[in-house]
Design a protein around this nucleic acid. Sequence first.
RNA 1: GGGGGGAUACCAAAGUGGCCAACUGGGGCAGACUGUAAAUCUGUUGGCGUAAGCCUUCGUAGGUUCGAAUCCUGCUCCCCCCA
Length: 404
Amino acid sequence: MSFLPVDEQLAIIKRGTVEIVPEEELIKKLKKSRKENKPLRVKLGVDPTRPDLHLGHSVILRKLRQFQDLGHEAILIIGGFTAMIGDPTGQNKTRPPLTPEEVSENAETYISQAKKILDQSKTVIVNNNDWLGSMSFMDIVKLSSNLTVARMIERDDFSKRFENSEPISLHEFLYPLAQGQDSVHLKSDIELGGTDQKFNLLVGRDLQRADNQAPQICLMMPLLVGTDGSKKMSKSYDNYIGIDEPANDIYGKSLSIPDDLIYSYFELVSDVSIEKLAELKDQIRKDPRNSKHELAFTITRMYHGEAGAKAAREHFEQTVINKDVPDDAPELEYAAGSTIRLMDIISDAELTQSNGETKRLMKQGGVSLNDEKISDPNAEVEFLKGSQFDLKVGKRKFARLIGV
RNA sequence: GGGGGGAUACCAAAGUGGCCAACUGGGGCAGACUGUAAAUCUGUUGGCGUAAGCCUUCGUAGGUUCGAAUCCUGCUCCCCCCA
C-alpha cells in the first residue's frame, strides 16, 4: 500500500474540519508515515449511551472512514468503561451512569450501524473497559496527578455549574483522564472528536507526554446543525435524520433543512467529491430547490442505494408535491356490501392513536377519501365489489381501501 | 448537623377547595401558503362516546369535605442556604 502525497492527504483530511491541533505536527506525522510506509493510528472514541446513529454522528465517522481510505489505521473505541462514568461535556448536570448490560447492548447496535459508514474489513474495534477496568486505585491516583483542579474548572461546563452552585461529582473529573488514558494505551497518532471534545482530546496529549509518547494530533469536527436549523443534531431535540431510517424519511427530512445548511450538509455528511463541493457553492445559490433535492438524493443513496433513493424521490414527489396517495400505500380489504364508519377504518388501521385524534383530524380537514375532504366523524364508506378508495390521513399516512 | 423551597400533562411553567382535562410558552399534529416535511399565519394538543355525558390524570399512600391539583398526615425523590 502506498500513500498519497501529503498535500493530497491533507486536503481530504481538512475537509469540514474546524481545527487541527497542531497542524504542523500532523504534516510531520503524515510525511514520516509516507516515508516509512507506516499507517497512522487514528482513534475515535464513542459512548454507547444512545445507540441510534444519526447524520450528526456520521460526520465524525465519515472522517474516520476518510483516514481508512487514505490507508491509515482506524481504531474505534467503544467506551464501555467511560460510559459508566458519563461524559460531562456540555452537560449541565451529572449524567446517570449506565449498567454494564446496557452498555454492551448499546455497543452492539452502535457497531452494526457504524459499519454502514466505516470500512468493515479494516476497522479495529476495542472496548476501553479492557484496560481501564483493571486499573488499580493507585494507578488512578498517579494518573490524576497529571491534571490540576484549576485546569479542570477552567472548563466552561464545569465552571458554569460551579458558579451556579450545581453539583459536580468528583468522578466527573475522571472522565477526561480515562479518555486520555485510552490514547496512551493505544499509542494513538490522531484522535478525532467534535468541537465540544477539545478539552478531552487535549488531555490525551498531556498524558501521552507524561508517558514519554509523541502526543497525538487532535482533530475537531463541527457539530452538525439539526433539521430545525438552530440546535445541534440530537435525538433529544428531535431534529435528527437517523441513518437507519427508511429511505422516504431520510429523503423528506433532508429536504426540510433550511437552505443555508445545504452546503455544510454536502460537506460534512455526503460523499460528493471535493471538486464537486467547489462547484456546489455556486449551484446552491442559483438553484436551492434542485440543490437540496440533490442533497436529499445523495444522502438517501448513501444509506439505501441508488434504487432506494430513486424510489424515495418518487414517493416524495407523489405525496408531498402532488399530494397523491403513493403506489406503495398499504391495501385494506373490506367485504363487498358492507358499510363501515370511516373513523373505525382509520382507527382499526392504526393510522391514528385514538378515536379522539381521528375526530380532530377530520374536523381540521386532515382526512380525505379520493381527494375529497371528509369532516363528518360519522361518515360511512360503502363497499361494493371492486370499489377502491384512496384514503389520506394527515400529510403522511395513506391507505387504499378495496371492496372484495 | 441546622434551616428553607419544591415535585402539575412531551418539556417549561401558572393554578392554592367548586367556574380545572387544568392559563401560557416551547414542542408535536393539522389546515392555508410554498420549490420543500423550511419560514409564516390559523387551528388543535388525556381516553371512551355521534352527542349529552362518563372515565382516568396534577410525586406516592391514606385522610378531611357534598366536592381537592388545591387542606391534613405518612412515605419517596429533588434543590437551595448555613455549618
